Lab assay of single mutants.
Amino acid sequence: MKVIFLKDVKGKGKKGEIKNVPDGYARNFLFKKGLAIEATPANLKELE
């Protein structure tokens, strides 16, 4: 799953980066803790 990092996550990504991460990791950790959001076309446009 492609995500946009909202905060730095040690060993995974830095704020503003767009990366592919495992689906479970994104849903169960990154999204729940507010560390990242899904890289949807709308979210990507908002980032620019």
Results as ranks from 00 to 15, higher is better:
residue 33 K to A: 11
residue 2 K to V: 14
residue 26 A to V: 07
residue 18 I to R: 02
residue 35 L to P: 00
residue 48 E to T: 13
residue 32 K to R: 13
residue 34 G to V: 03
residue 29 F to M: 06
residue 11 G to H: 08
residue 26 A to P: 01
residue 23 D to R: 14
residue 3 V to H: 00
residue 27 R to G: 02
residue 4 I to G: 00
residue 23 D to Q: 14
residue 22 P to W: 07
residue 39 A to H: 06
residue 21 V to Q: 04
residue 47 L to S: 08
residue 12 K to L: 15
residue 5 F to W: 02
residue 3 V to I: 08
residue 28 N to A: 09
residue 16 G to L: 05
residue 2 K to S: 11
residue 39 A to K: 02
residue 10 K to I: 12
residue 17 E to T: 07
residue 8 D to R: 07
residue 18 I to Y: 03
residue 42 A to Q: 14
residue 47 L to A: 09
residue 32 K to M: 11
residue 46 E to W: 15
residue 40 T to V: 05
residue 7 K to Q: 12
residue 40 T to D: 05
residue 21 V to N: 00
residue 10 K to P: 15
residue 18 I to N: 02
residue 37 I to H: 04
residue 46 E to A: 15
residue 42 A to F: 09
residue 36 A to G: 03
residue 19 K to V: 11
residue 31 F to G: 01
residue 37 I to N: 02
residue 6 L to T: 08
residue 11 G to I: 01
residue 43 N to F: 11
residue 34 G to M: 09
residue 29 F to W: 11
residue 36 A to T: 01
residue 23 D to G: 12
residue 30 L to P: 01
residue 13 G to M: 04
residue 31 F to P: 01
residue 3 V to P: 00
residue 46 E to H: 13
residue 38 E to G: 04
residue 47 L to I: 12
residue 16 G to F: 09
residue 46 E to L: 15
residue 29 F to G: 02
residue 33 K to L: 15
residue 36 A to R: 00
residue 30 L to E: 00
residue 12 K to R: 14
residue 40 T to F: 05
residue 9 V to N: 01
residue 12 K to A: 15
residue 17 E to V: 04
residue 24 G to H: 14
residue 6 L to R: 03
residue 19 K to R: 12
residue 38 E to S: 08
residue 34 G to E: 05
residue 6 L to P: 00
residue 42 A to R: 11
residue 19 K to I: 10
residue 12 K to M: 15
residue 39 A to D: 02
residue 43 N to H: 09
residue 47 L to T: 08
residue 8 D to L: 04
residue 36 A to M: 01
residue 19 K to F: 05
residue 21 V to H: 02
residue 15 K to N: 04
residue 24 G to N: 13
residue 44 L to M: 10
residue 7 K to F: 14
residue 30 L to I: 01
residue 16 G to A: 03
residue 33 K to W: 15
residue 42 A to I: 10
residue 7 K to D: 05
residue 10 K to W: 14
residue 25 Y to V: 06
residue 8 D to Q: 05
residue 36 A to Q: 01
residue 12 K to V: 15
residue 34 G to Q: 08
residue 17 E to G: 03
residue 48 E to G: 14
residue 26 A to R: 02
residue 33 K to Q: 12
residue 40 T to S: 10
residue 39 A to S: 04
residue 9 V to L: 06
residue 25 Y to I: 07
residue 29 F to A: 04
residue 31 F to T: 03
residue 34 G to S: 06
residue 5 F to K: 01
residue 4 I to R: 04
residue 11 G to Q: 05
residue 4 I to E: 02
residue 46 E to T: 13
residue 21 V to E: 03
residue 40 T to H: 06
residue 7 K to R: 13
residue 2 K to F: 15
residue 22 P to T: 09
residue 20 N to I: 15
residue 37 I to G: 02
residue 19 K to D: 03
residue 42 A to N: 11
residue 32 K to D: 06
residue 15 K to H: 06
residue 17 E to N: 04
residue 43 N to T: 10
residue 42 A to T: 10
residue 21 V to K: 00
residue 37 I to Y: 05
residue 5 F to G: 01
residue 32 K to Q: 09
residue 16 G to K: 03
residue 17 E to D: 12
residue 28 N to Y: 14
residue 11 G to S: 06
residue 14 K to L: 11
